[in-house]
Computed example of a mutant assay.
Amino acid sequence: MKTNHPESFEIEIDRKKLLRISKRDELSGYFVLLMLIAGLAILCGSKAYFISLYMTFGLWGALLIPGLLTVATAWALAKLLMLIFGNRRAIKFADAYRVLIDGSCLRVVTPRTDHKIHFRQIVDFELLKESPFYTDKVNTIMMRTTVGGQNSMSIKLLAAVNPLRTRDLLAEIDAQRG
């Protein structure tokens, strides 16, 4: 069937937005990991320290002071790890991320994976906001696919330049080539 689009082309990605997203994800990962480690360290800590806090500040003080210290320490260490390791990984991810239309297949390339999915396996396209708290800007297109019956998989297209137009373009190509 003749289509209005070239056989193979690349979807345009906003690299600055993608870099911001990948840096945020790296920082979140480091923070969660450090919170788990710090929480275990507090549970294994000395009972005398908790008893002295309890005697001085009461129950809430004994729980709140170590909790706040844990969060502050984990955040500071996460920022430090982000400066040492995370920036390089985020930049590498943002540079290597590609979304390609290759005939009747959609190809999403990251530094670790290379998904190639036929358009007939894509069930629907969904637009996601970055966060309901920060902005009304849509910046992710999520596609659900069928991979052998009831099993399904979601694929995210991050930081498309114009997500609404890109979603409509993918849906049109899906209708024509799928």
Rank of each mutant, 00 (worst) to 15 (best):
D136C: 06
V123Q: 06
L36M: 11
K79N: 08
K2I: 04
G149A: 06
C105R: 09
I13C: 07
G39T: 08
K116W: 07
A41H: 01
A160Q: 02
G86V: 07
A159D: 12
T145H: 02
I65A: 14
L36D: 03
G149N: 11
R112S: 15
T135D: 15
L18M: 02
K23A: 03
S52G: 01
M55W: 05
L81I: 00
W75I: 01
A38F: 14
R89Y: 09
A94W: 05
I117T: 11
I155Y: 15
T145A: 13
L170T: 13
L34H: 00
R24M: 07
L40M: 03
R112W: 13
I13R: 03
I11L: 12
C44K: 07
T3M: 02
A74N: 09
E26M: 14
G149D: 06
I91Y: 07
M82Q: 15
R120I: 01
F9W: 04
L127K: 07
D114R: 08
I84N: 10
Q121F: 06
K156M: 09
M82P: 05
K92P: 04
G67M: 13
N87D: 15
I21D: 12
I173H: 00
V138H: 11
F31S: 01
D136Q: 10
S46L: 09
I117R: 10
S46A: 12
Q150F: 11
L170K: 13
Y49W: 10
G29F: 02
K92G: 14
Q150Y: 04
K23G: 03
K92D: 12
E10H: 00
G61H: 11
S131L: 02
A41T: 02
D174I: 02
F57T: 06
L127S: 06
D124E: 08
A160K: 04
H115M: 03
T56V: 04
D14P: 03
S152V: 01
D136S: 08
A160T: 05
T73W: 14
F50S: 12
L127E: 09
K23F: 02
A72C: 14
T146W: 00
F50R: 05
K129E: 13
G86Y: 06
Y49S: 08
P6S: 07
M143T: 00
R112P: 02
M35V: 10
E126P: 00
S28D: 00
L106A: 10
M143E: 00
Q121W: 06
V109A: 00
W60R: 04
L53P: 07
Q176E: 01
R20T: 11
R165F: 09
D124M: 00
L64H: 12
E126L: 07
T140D: 12
H115D: 11
V123E: 08
L83K: 02
K47F: 15
A41L: 12
H115T: 08
G178Q: 05
F50D: 09
V109R: 10
I141T: 05
L59N: 05
A171N: 03
K116M: 14
A94S: 15
Q176R: 01
I155W: 15
G103S: 13
L63I: 07
V109T: 14
